[in-house]
Every structure is written in structure tokens, then in C-alpha cells.
Amino acid sequence: MSQKLSVFTSSFLLGSVPCFISVAKNGSKGLVDFVGSIDASDPTVLYLLALFLIQLVVSGLGHFKPGYKPGVNQRFRFYYAVVNSVGPGITCLTQVVSGAIFAAACVASWKYQEAGIWMVIGLWIMWPLFLAGAVNLDRVNRYAVEWQN
């Protein structure tokens, strides 16, 4: 199975299916409640963004494998392992949000009179962006695991 299909499938299972269940049980209110339960405060979002950026920097540095001093290499491998153990959690959160946006876009398209056409368009534009982010995070995490071994 390709990496993109794997990420889409897990995104669908983690975010879309629970959202569709919530909509089936409570209608449009269920969609609002489900997406609202994923919503995080601004400081939390900034913290997760900072973790993501730190992970990208450390993973980028890991690509060069600093081996010129044994002490530096050992410390770097420790930091690399710690930072990349956070990565799968961030990837999972991105997949859940991506799946929820996909479900919200489907429901909003179905009931576009309630949601408004611009909401529908916005959701269909946001979904591939979050899915691409989840695919890229998954790629970084796989690379990190390969490099550690």
C-alpha cells in the first residue's frame, strides 16, 4: 500500500468515521460538537507548531549525520530520538484533523444551504493541505526511524 493511501486511510479511520458517527447520531449539531472538541487554544496550537518546527530542524540536521566528534554524535542521537518520538503524536493529531475536515466537507457539501457555499469551498481547500501535512509528517517520522536503526 502506498504511503499516501496509508495516511489517507488512517486519517479517514481516526477523524472521518467518528465525525460521521457523530453526525448520524446528532445531525449538524453533532458535526459542530465533534469539530469543536478537536479545537485547541491558541497557545496549544503554537506549542504544537513549535514542536513540529523543532522536529523539522533536528530531522534536517540528522540528514547530515554529524560524526566529526563522538560526544556530539551521541548527544545528537539522544536529541534526535527524543524529538522524533514526539513526531508520531503530531502526525496522529494531523491525521485526525485531516479526517475531520474531510468529513465536515462532505457533510457541508450535502447540507450546503445550512453551511453556506464559502464554508464548503473553504473546507475542500483546507482538507488537501492538512492531508499533505500528514503525509509529510509521516515521511519525516519514517525517515527518522530508518536513520536511528
Rank of each mutant, 00 (worst) to 15 (best):
M1H: 12
K4Q: 14
V7S: 02
V7D: 02
F8E: 01
F8T: 01
F8Q: 01
T9F: 15
T9N: 05
S10A: 07
S10I: 03
S11N: 03
S11T: 05
F12A: 03
L13R: 09
L13Y: 10
L14G: 00
G15A: 05
S16E: 03
S16I: 03
V17R: 07
C19S: 14
F20E: 03
S22F: 05
S22V: 02
S22I: 02
V23H: 04
V23E: 02
N26G: 05
G27P: 04
G27I: 12
V32H: 08
D33M: 13
D33R: 11
F34T: 00
V35N: 04
I38V: 13
A40G: 07
S41I: 06
D42H: 06
T44P: 01
Y47R: 08
L48M: 12
L49P: 01
L49M: 13
A50L: 14
A50P: 02
L53R: 06
L56I: 14
S59A: 13
G60K: 11
K65A: 12
P70N: 13
P70F: 15
N73Y: 11
R75Y: 12
F76R: 05
F76W: 15
Y79N: 11
Y79F: 15
Y80R: 01
V83S: 04
N84V: 06
N84H: 15
V86T: 06
V86H: 02
G87D: 05
I90W: 05
I90A: 08
C92G: 11
C92D: 04
L93T: 11
Q95F: 09
Q95I: 08
V96R: 00
F102N: 00
F102Q: 00
A103G: 09
A104F: 12
V107W: 02
V107G: 00
V107K: 00
A108Q: 02
A108E: 03
S109G: 14
S109P: 03
W110M: 10
Y112D: 06
E114K: 05
A115I: 09
A115F: 15
I117Y: 11
W118E: 13
M119H: 08
V120L: 08
I121N: 03
G122C: 07
L123K: 04
W124L: 08
W124I: 06
W124Q: 02
M126F: 10
M126C: 10
W127Y: 10
P128S: 10
L129A: 14
L129W: 14
F130Y: 14
F130T: 03
F130W: 05
A132E: 09
G133Q: 10
A134P: 00
V135P: 00
N136S: 09
V140D: 01
N141R: 10
N141P: 04
R142L: 09
Y143K: 09
A144I: 03
A144Y: 00
E146T: 11
E146M: 08
W147F: 07
Q148I: 13
N149Y: 13
